[in-house]
Amino acid sequence: MDVINQSRRGFLKGALGAGVAGVALGYGLVPLSAEAAMPNGAAWPKKAFNTPSVDDTISELYGMSAVESDKITMDLPTIAQNGAVVPVKVETSLPDVTAIALLVAQNPNALAAAFEIPDGTLPFVSNRLKMAKTTDVVAVVVSGGKAYKATQNVKVTVGGCGG
């Protein structure tokens, strides 16, 4: 790690410091706060991004397991011609949403993206994801301190992950 990188991290920590503390407190997550305390930790949940299974990732990320909910609306194609770019839109009518995560079950590591939804931000997100092959896409929503999930299958007709 060179000097420039170090100072950049320092800067990032300063800028995001409040956010990091907020996350650690908000989720009450032991693994995450330990991660944040590490010199290179930043706020990025490294371990959650390196977990292959969907359920393990959810518990790594939020410290609990998610229950199915029909209040989560997922908008994504059922057949994707190009697995490298699959638009995924998630919206929910659940109250007090603090976080949304997108997981791709068949990818080498399930977690694709985790979003923090502060007060005043609507529980909506649209993002484009890569998926290696035909797979379930799982949307996880943390609402009022509980985790909920919804699943939809995407058929990938051309090999994805090609970048």
């Binding site: 770019v85 997100v125 649209s126 890569k130 998926m131």
Partner: peptide, 25 residues
């Protein structure tokens, strides 16, 4: 000065990533 949205991304997010979000205030 207030974060209204934060995304932690992994390598499974597409090249040239696109993001849409909505907030009040």
């Amino acid at each position: 000065g207030k974060d209204v949205f934060k995304a932690d991304w992994g390598p499974a997010v597409s090249k040239d990533p696109f993001l849409e979000c909505r907030f009040k205030g």
